[in-house]
Design a binder for these strands. Structure first.
Length: 196
DNA sequence: GATGCGATTCAC
DNA sequence: TGAATCGCATCA
């Protein structure tokens, strides 16, 4: 990992399809962010239509966001008044929605991550949606930006061969039955163990 | 204006 | 198990 600051090699069309498929295929990709990088090992999909757990179900502002921005736009929001959560807007002919980045395996910039997180163990740096934004220094200023076009921010395609599991989403009160959480099996950096 | 509620994390 | 503490939506 000698060149962590490398642009995305995913075409914008990667985000112009079904958000569930997009969330699944992001597992194993590498997320680069201003000198830091990590392998994406956990994501969740949220559908703008018919998904009670998606912000679009209860927030007019979220529906507005989907309508006004292109696929690949960052949707960043604060929850519990404590943590920033990072999503990518996905808009395909089969459906629109978001992919929430939930966990990474740190690959570059570990020292900076440790300082931002105030933790030493590698598994404590990015093993949760709030943790990874803190480790990477992501905050609300990123909201609405198309990070894919930045030189020092982006996503690089997966090498392949990553074992992917699906399970119900975490921390939501409705839509629990949908298996829209995707994870790299056996990763030590997951936010929680996969559902049995 | 006031109130309620989170796609969470950490210390107690 | 509960506190932290902010934006958004809803209601008075």
């Amino acid at each position: 990992m000698s060149t962590p600051d490398k642009g995305s090699d995913l075409e914008p069309c990667f985000f112009r399809r079904d958000p569930v498929a997009c969330a699944r295929e992001l597992i194993g990709c590498t997320f680069y962010w201003k000198g830091c990088a990590g392998e994406i090992v956990e994501t969740e999909a949220y559908a703008a239509e018919g998904d009670p757990a998606c912000h679009t179900a209860v927030r007019p502002s979220a529906r507005e966001f989907v309508a006004r921005h292109p696929a690949g736009t960052a949707y960043v929001y604060m929850n519990y008044g404590v943590h920033w959560l990072f999503n990518v807007l996905v808009k395909g002919p089969e459906g629109e929605g978001f992919v929430l980045f939930r966990a990474l395996e740190p690959r570059a910039g570990l020292a900076v991550m440790r300082r931002r997180r105030g933790r030493e163990a590698e598994r404590d740096l990015c093993s949760g949606p709030g943790k990874l934004t803190q480790a990477l220094g992501i905050d609300g200023s990123v909201h609405q930006s198309s990070f894919l076009q930045h030189r020092h921010r982006g996503i690089r395609a997966a090498a392949g061969g990553v074992p992917i599991l699906a399970s119900p989403r975490i921390g939501i009160s409705s839509g629990k039955e949908l298996p829209w959480r995707f994870l790299k099996a056996g990763s030590p950096c997951l936010s929680a163990a996969p559902a049995p």
